[in-house]
């Protein structure tokens, strides 16, 4: 354990992924970066700006960063085909800002269309008064078996930026307008407030993501932990009296954790509906075929493909699955079709 000036933490920019952390727990720091585990909190200083010129604060707003700025982030991996692939390793001589939401690690590959990662100099791994690393898991929602299961509509897609987040948000909006208490959840991915805020803007009654379940990212996490995280989010939604949840599963069907999830019989049995976002008709056909290989069939297609009437016609002809635009998902009459399929019978009393 190394003594360091705790006042640095007061001035530091605490990133979105650390929003559940009780800062009073932090009592010390060390430089055993080679022992850092995913989720451990790291104090670092900005060394050189690259792809990310801003970080996302716990307050929900972005903040420009400047060389020398102190930032608190969580050690983690990153899966982002349009940016970086990174792993949860920290070199004392320098580390990478893998995600603006607050993920520090080592970049191992990058998309040729983006700049190199912003470089950070790790200053300390944060410890509690017992000398234990302060990890996001400590502040995660606790699992509970008290809450009843609520129906969940899963949102999957072909890749990043296929329209999953918009679909999740708009379906949550439509369900709220149809009269339900709705949870908008992100089951997998890397912590960032963009999706979280987009969900919250719909007026969803509860918004949460995997960072609430103690993970800065689900990339490289064991399937059992990822599933436990999703269960925690759903239990949390049920405890908050939500009637139904819409849950986005990040990235494409071939991404490692997503592929494991859709192949998992427990997940297949757990979901009450499925929405698939894709970019064009060929992607629609491929996605529907891949889902069929796992015994799944989407209730509807959506995403970028829905912007083009010609692509819609082709996708529907190729798959036999209805394509819904974002306006359709936000329409309470349309959204209610998902809920009515998912929810148990209601009693009538006047």
């Amino acid at each position: 354990m190394t003594r360091f000036d705790l006042s640095q933490l007061t001035d530091a920019k605490w990133t979105f992924s650390t929003r559940r952390v009780d800062r009073a727990v932090v009592a010390a720091g060390d430089t055993a970066f080679d022992q850092a585990r995913p989720g451990d909190l790291i104090l670092a200083h900005v060394a050189e700006l690259g792809q990310h010129k801003r970080v996302q604060l716990t307050s929900g707003r972005p903040s420009f960063i400047y060389p020398g700025d102190a930032v608190v982030l969580a050690c983690g991996a990153r899966y982002a085909p349009d940016q970086f692939e990174g792993i949860a390793e920290i070199d004392a001589n320098g580390a990478d800002l893998l995600a603006g939401g607050g993920c520090i690690g080592r970049m191992v590959a990058r998309n040729s269309r983006v700049r190199a990662a912003t470089r950070l100099i790790p200053a300390a791994r944060l410890l509690d008064d017992a000398g234990q690393p302060v990890n996001l898991e400590r502040f995660a929602l606790q699992n509970t078996t008290r809450a009843q299961d609520i129906p969940v509509i899963a949102v999957l897609g072909t890749a990043m930026n296929s329209g999953k987040t918009l679909a999740t948000a708009q379906l949550a909006l439509g369900l709220r307008r149809a009269g339900y208490r709705v949870a908008a959840l992100k089951g997998t991915g890397t912590g960032a407030f963009g999706d979280y805020n987009e969900y919250a803007d719909t007026g969803a009654h509860l918004v949460a993501d995997f960072t609430d379940a103690g993970m800065v990212t689900t990339f490289h996490e064991p399937l059992a932990r990822v599933k436990q995280g999703m269960d925690r989010l759903l239990h949390h939604a049920a405890e908050n009296r939500c009637d139904i949840a819409v849950m986005e599963i990040a990235d494409g069907l071939f991404q490692r954790e997503t592929a494991q999830i859709i192949a998992d019989p427990a997940f297949q049995a757990r979901i009450s509906g499925l929405l698939f976002a894709c970019g064009d008709a060929v992607a629609a056909a491929g996605g529907v075929a891949e889902l069929a290989r796992h015994g799944l069939r989407p209730d509807a297609l959506t995403g970028i493909v829905s912007c083009s009437p010609m692509a819609v016609a082709e996708a529907e002809a190729a798959t036999g699955v209805t394509v819904l635009r974002k306006e359709d998902l936000a329409d309470p009459a349309e959204a209610n079709t998902f809920a009515l399929r998912a929810l148990p019978d209601l009693r009538h009393s006047a």
Binding site: A178, G179, P332, A333, N336, A339, L340, L346, H348, A350
Partner: peptide, 9 residues
């Protein structure tokens, strides 16, 4: 028909 969840009678 569209919102049977909202109608009691």
């Amino acid at each position: 028909m569209l919102y049977p969840n909202r109608v009691a009678r």
